[in-house]
Nucleic acid binder design. Sequence first.
DNA 1: AAACAGTTATACCCC
DNA 2: ATAACTGTTT
Length: 775
Amino acid sequence: MIDQLNPEQQAAVTLPPQHALVLAGAGSGKTRVLTTRMAWLIQTSQASPFGLLAVTFTNKSAREMLTRLSALLPINTRGMWVGTFHGLCNRMLRAHHRDAGLLQTFQILDSADQLAAIKRLIKGAGIDDEKYPPRDVQRFINGAKEEGLRPGSVDAWDAHRRRLVEIYQMYQDQCEREGVVDFAELLLRAYELLQRNAPIREHYQRRFQHILVDEFQDTNTLQYQWLKLLAGEGASIFAVGDDDQSIYAFRGANVGNMAEFERDYAHGTVIRLEQNYRSYGHILDSANALIAHNTGRLGKNLWTEQGEGEPVRVVEQPSDLLEAHWLVDEIKAVIGEGSLRSEIAVLYRSNAQSRVIEHALFSSRIPYKVYGGLRFFERQEVKHALAYLRLMDNLHDDTSWLRVVNFPTRGIGARTLEQLSDLARQNNTSLYKAVPLMSGKGGGNLLKFTELIQQMAYEAQILSLPELVEHVIHHSGLRTFYQGEKEGADRLENLQELVNAATVFAAEENFDGLPAGRILMPDAPLAAEDPAQPPAADSAEDAATDADVFSPVVQMSPLGAFLSHASLEAGDNQAQAGQDAIQLMTVHAAKGLEFDTVFITGVEEGLFPHENSLIEAAGLEEERRLMYVAITRARQRLYLTLAQSRMLHGQTRYAMRSRFLDEIPEEHLKWLTPRERAPVVANSNWSAGAYRRGDAYGRPSTGGAVARPARSLTTGVSVGDKHFRIGQGVTHAKFGEGTIIGLSGAGVDAQAQIQFRDVGTKTLALGIAKLEIAG
DNA sequence: AAACAGTTATACCCC
DNA sequence: ATAACTGTTT
């Protein structure tokens, strides 16, 4: 089992029970180490399969872990605590819903549901949505929860923030009333449950002697606290991660957790996995050189035995269109060399870039697949069907109620619903309960809808899960509705797919033939859910303790279980995985994947690094990690492409090449188009005089009126008597000295992105801002 | 008066 | 592609 591992991997796998941090570089066999560690612990009887807990960030990697584990050992992995943070917290909360203060049937809001709930709240409470945009409110609430803060503990230093806290509180009340829980709440509740309830905490602390964490660099503050609490004094935490691949700060991930973990627990038990089994030398060296520009790293250098391979190819094109055309030609050539299409990936920083690339591929009839669109359970028709199903489980789920009350349309409009909402608010009840209170007309249609829901809820007590799903799709009118739609064929297919998903799920969970709505009492208490394949020494003793402490056990109906599954799984977003097609995705989506050939497109200032991230140094470092992730996806060949101009939001924008290109030593690069002597953007100050010059293609120098070939592009904008160009030094009365790093628009609409020495990057309207051109 | 259907404005960085 | 707006239908 371990003899195929390299010495570092072996050391990690066979570490005695103690806290440890494994710094696992890209392509260093991270998942393998994790799974082998689990297998080793079990095989050497240091842990039973049910005495360890492994947590990951995606369902996919949780599944992969279990698959690999069962390949290593002849054990039944069912019932093991291996899953995502959200999945495990959900499991815990379901088991102890009473102690957690939740309804047994609590529903999970995904972020779209959450946003809808917030919008509804803001409307209902008459809050100005200009001053409090629902998106910002959502960010505020989730941010607070990820820090472990309830409304009472959030710092509110000004009126605006105080109001936000009030909204946060109102939102919590609303969730409480409706019996719903958002993603962040799942974690916070589970944390508070462990914190407040000593018997439960001690039970889990006793049970899980080994806690293994994947992708530790992506944990947020709350997740780390949860792990600490769960580990208590006795358990060992085996944390695997790569601080250089931390790219989720925008959703709360805290890179600092890695260093903190080392301080708190690992005390020098840090194992570095630096041998890379994926890429050739030039690619790795480029990645190493780039990431070396970040500060505060734990430090790590990837190496390979594979040789240096091909240099990284760099291509600069005048426009995004030409970039895409070049891309298509090059892809054809790579395919011509015998590469599989599915082994070629085109990566981009932002989704907006995919359009042009897709268009070019489509025109050339090259099959491609875009990742990261809507996932199965996020599609509107599926969400509609799920909303009906949720109402079967909990009639007071107002979010679901509002989603489908008039879909398909049944003559219940905004006016009626407004009245209903008012009634519900006045009586502090759900919309469902408020229906009988409605007097007068308009109520007729509402009543009919209520009866429909009641009827379907009744069916849930009789029909099996797949039958119920089918029944609901039919009797809700969803099927008829989409049959009448011009573009409804796909949606009908997805609805059918939902029935299939329910069938598969019911079979996997042994729900066959059971009524969807009937609550299942598991036949044994918590610890005894162990199928007890290899006899766990402590299980009998554990079960006895559990029976005393826990009367409530996992109570769930097949329907409830399926709805949880739908919320937490979100489904695959790759429709037809079988076909051999070029892989298109954002850099974020590419994390964890690898390809023979990788194209990283749009390697430009303002795009990659993204302009929004340049405001603070931490943002720039995250962008650099993002580039690091992108580079390390490539096995054999890597291309970096950039365009001098690009259509964005209907405007042409001009940008310089990314500073990241200049952070990779030239010895690893091979420019396929001439490298211009463009300025190197050092952090804030670079000397004037280093701007663009004309090049071999006869593109203009930026000096001013130069004859240009027909296709060439302006890199400057004139406003009044001033002429602005990229790379120009300017001064602003308030912001001080800066440099133009991007231009867009023309005439009165002209705007410039300016990187100021002291205040970061700002976008200014050239017609308004009084800029002086620096000498 | 209320609900519906079709049109137009704006949008988006990443999960 | 969602939200806001407009004209038409019940």
